[in-house]
Amino acid sequence: MFTNLVFIILFMIGFYALVMKTNLIKNVIGLNLMEAAVFFWVISFSDIGGEVAIHKMGEEMTKFNDPVPQALTLTGIVIGASTAALLLTLIIELNKFSGTIDREKIEGLND
């Protein structure tokens, strides 16, 4: 199934960036990519070929896409944005202390 395939590829790219890249900003990007993959999958999976779930005045609509996954995704996006902001803040702070954002060069990250 195409949706699943795209989801898994995106998810894996995100995972790869999270695990393998040593640049912390890239890790954050990877993490966000993972989240984005999940959101993409939710939206595209719930798409059954109907309209966006907004009534138009004066028109009788019959086939809507499910609005609930979209609402949930919106919440998820906001949480993802908050966490990403927090992570970036911490990375800025860490950069001030150790002068680098390469996690292999930051001492003590491993013990």
């Binding site: 995972f15 999270l18 695990v19 393998m20 040593t22 996690r103 292999e104 990250l109 491993n110 013990d111």
Partner: peptide, 13 residues
């Protein structure tokens, strides 16, 4: 057990 951070994260997958 505590290799570098990459290995630690790799435990998740």
């Amino acid at each position: 057990v505590y290799q570098d951070f990459t290995m630690q994260l790799l435990w998740i997958p």
